[in-house]
Design a protein around this nucleic acid. Structure first.
Lengths: 345, 345
DNA sequence: TTGTAGGCGTTATCAT
DNA sequence: ATGATAACGCCTACAA
């Protein structure tokens, strides 16, 4: 067969290289390279011809070869504690969209909140030579952040859970957000307001609890310690927590997030109580299901998608050499629906 | 400064290469390469010494350089129509876990069901030289699958929505699943059972509707066309669809998925009707919130995580050269909760 | 057991 | 406007 002469003899997976195209177009590979980048240095006609051949031969530039020489992979690493969480996936969606618009590919890594897996994630990102990293809801910040920083690429944290925040970040104002929630309840006349936190939420939980406390203090309402409990941010624990709370007769409850609220709602209903008539419930996040709970959930909204967009935009700035520290704080917003009401009895 | 001699003079982001280590260890770079791969060809002591130096100098092998020479990137591309969907993100979680265990990195791409973006996704995966691709819930299969196949890497489809399925796949048995749901309702004495489909679900919707129809036929229950409507798989449309359905007085409803059911529940409740006393509801998927709806949702379970695991396992087989066609069909399972009841009136 | 040499597919810097 | 030539960091014969 005379189909030969290619510089690439591999049996199956074959894609033409710049050199193959050069041969077909009877020019040097440098000219091909230039033509493919639409360099003004190549004669228009030659350029057209080369691009035509490239197109017809199904040429695809190799990002890996390019990355090797340019030392920029146009790739980012994205670490999440778990992708199977509506909050996270919404943020990821925003990040991806922005990354894609800027020509970045994104490596996804789901740490499952497991330190050992997180270790591997870092390894792999380092080896892939990503240009930047976004970490959402990191719980173990200081565990691997030193490793990350050793890579010398910009790192941006979204809603970091670790105290002593690390360089660049985009984060919701947790304190203000929970203040909003608690104040709303207080204005409705509630004085026995419970709080269901997230024991794995570290700083985030602390800040939200802080907002809850501050709202009470500002209103001169005494804190009742037995009304402060913790779950793990998931519905099952939210339900359990609410069940433990019931004997203490709260008339309202602030939840760490909507998923916790979901569990709380279930517990309340299964005990034959009504929301909001017997107990008011407020969540945090405003994930997609919030308007569809029974009753629709009043909650503190985080603009998740926008936070993702912002995160990627900031990371892009950092990757293009910007030196200044980025620390964006997002304003939360209380979304009133039907799970809260004036205290009756 | 005499800190020089490195083969890498770049100002900022620097990480030692195999050659730098070779110099420090006073051996050739090939020996270093071998030592780092724990080749038995290198003397134990030399190997130890080299690895120690590598460790201490913070050496990280470059996946991009390695990929260039080996022509294997140990990378897969993962295309989803939208990551912000509990079904998808659960599948993705499974895929990631399995990929990570096998030493693969994963590129995530969210097409947003937009053909133009999907086009870009393919481009980028091709350029990144991924070793394999997983596509979940593709709606526009034939639009870009030819492009994909041109890349000559294995492609695996999870729950493909496109008729005329494409090579390798892992998919739930939609027909059987919806049969399960409809039969359950029929056994409970219902005869006016509605179906809320997904107009963007193509084959999937067709198959599920087929199951619904078959169950009716098998039971000799006439189909009532006005009870068959469509949403788009999201709660808002599910709610609208249910509202349209109400005047036709169904006593039960099969939903395309749980998110649709969520909307349906809302519509039913907001019209002062009760579930399951007035209307029984069954969903599909069994996403995390299904046990926490009001009342807890009876639904057809897809083992999402397992499907992801299976998908990646299959892809791995294909990537390691297996030729046989993979076509895995997953058995659905009806999960009984509290949203269905015997027909009363 | 180790070293030498070549090449993977690009970009980039020289010449011409 | 184009062509040589040399990296980029790694792997892998082939030699020694």
């Amino acid at each position: 067969m005379s189909d030969e002469g290619s510089s690439n003899h591999k049996k199956h997976v074959w894609s033409p290289s710049i050199k193959d195209i050069a041969r077909m177009a009877k020019v040097s590979h440098s000219t091909v390279s230039r033509a493919l980048q639409n360099s003004p240095l190549v004669k228009h006609k030659t350029g057209e011809k080369i691009r035509k051949i490239a197109r017809e031969s199904g040429y695809r530039p190799s990002a890996v070869a390019r990355g090797l020489v340019t030392r920029k992979t146009r790739t980012i690493g994205l670490v999440v504690t778990t992708i199977a969480d509506p909050f996270t996936s919404e943020v990821v969606s925003g990040i991806y969209q922005s990354a894609s618009e800027r020509g970045y590919s994104v490596f996804l890594a789901d740490s499952g909140a497991d330190p050992e897996r997180e270790e591997r994630v870092v390894q792999s990102f380092a080896e892939q030579r990503v240009d930047g990293i976004v970490v959402t809801s990191s719980r173990v910040g200081n565990l691997y952040l030193p490793l990350l920083s050793e890579m010398r690429v910009p790192i941006l944290l979204v809603n970091d859970q670790h105290p002593g925040a690390f360089v660049h970040s985009v984060a919701i104002k947790n304190f203000a957000g929970m203040c909003l929630a608690a104040n709303h309840l207080i204005e409705l006349g509630h004085t026995r307001i419970a709080y269901i936190g997230d024991s794995s939420g570290y700083k985030t939980d602390e800040e939200r609890l802080g907002g809850y406390r501050a709202a009470h203090e500002a209103a001169g309402i005494p804190l009742i310690e037995e009304l402060i409990v913790r779950g793990d941010g998931k519905p099952a624990q939210g339900m359990l927590a609410m069940e433990k709370l019931l004997p203490a007769h709260p008339t309202a409850v602030c939840c760490y997030n909507d998923r916790t609220a979901l569990g709380a709602l279930r517990a309340i209903h299964s005990h034959g109580l009504r929301v909001p008539e017997d107990i008011s419930v407020v969540g945090f996040d405003d994930i997609f299901l919030a308007p569809y709970t029974e009753p629709p959930l009043t909650t503190v909204r985080q603009p998740m998608r926008k936070m993702g967009l912002l995160a990627m935009e900031s990371l892009a700035r950092l990757m293009s050499g910007e030196e200044s520290e980025i620390r964006i704080e997002i304003e939360p917003e209380l979304v009133l629906r039907e799970s809260t009401a004036r205290r009756t009895e």
